[in-house]
Design a protein around this nucleic acid. Sequence first.
DNA 1: AAGGCTCGCAACCGCTCGATT
DNA 2: AAATCGAGCGGTTGCGAGCCT
Length: 272
Amino acid sequence: MKTENPADDNLINISNNNNRIQQEDQEAAEEVRRGPWTLEEDNLLIHYVACHGEGRWNFLAKSAGLKRNGKSCRLRWLNYLKPDIKRGNLSPQEQLLILELHSKWGNRWSKIAAHLPGRTDNEIKNYWRTRVQKQARQLNMEANSQSFIDAIRCFYMPRLVQKIEQNSIDHHTTAMNTDQVSHIIPSSNKDTSCSNTSLEFQDQLTNSKDGSSIVLDDINSVNSCNYDMDLGSMSASDMLFSGCHVEGNDWLANDMAEDGMWVLDELWQFRK
DNA sequence: AAGGCTCGCAACCGCTCGATT
DNA sequence: AAATCGAGCGGTTGCGAGCCT
């Protein structure tokens, strides 16, 4: 189609080109689906893997009639559809293990996941980013810093251990006995040095200037903690009554209150 | 009731590595 | 030895649900 005005011709050509590009984009989009998986796609994938097994994901995607790329299929299968995937909240045991393994290996999510049957690297990564890193931010620390790792070891991990022990007593389970736990919390000798150091740290928390965020000018007191904490020597109330409560930062309170074990804010009120 | 905000999770992306050809 | 491909990994993004104002 030609017009009398060359400028109009150009406009038509541009318009035609745009239409063609849009059409190509649309076709490409139709060819490889993205975004959330439908039930139908899940069923196709499950059925295909059940019949032919995992692997060769690009070939699998085509053979199964899925308009997805191989990577997407693999991810969907490994993170969601695989039969032994465990869903729901991480247990205190699992959280403890993640914290410990992360302090050992850093962001090696798949390596960490290998030690938590039924949990995926993606899930662990998400847990770390959404829960742990958030707390690090609130503490004005780097999540991967030694000081934050130490804070976790000194405060949070003992709480988890107590929780596990308490659950074990309550439910008469043998999911993780004290021996197993003591492997996770390094304990060269059973004195209270870490407790004392923890108290110094807690004083710093309490003495933070604005009361709403924690400023740690000298975290060395935590670094000096050598993890040989007597687990029985520092109860939840010890920690509370020594002043580890910061407005606007109720990590422990939230986590412990989640399953109704301790409501730290109530205890804090009691202290007042 | 509605709009904005936050959070958690599923999914994607880019990169690397190892096996195969 | 180089190229290609599949698989895996870690970082990042997008979206939906719930919460708040």
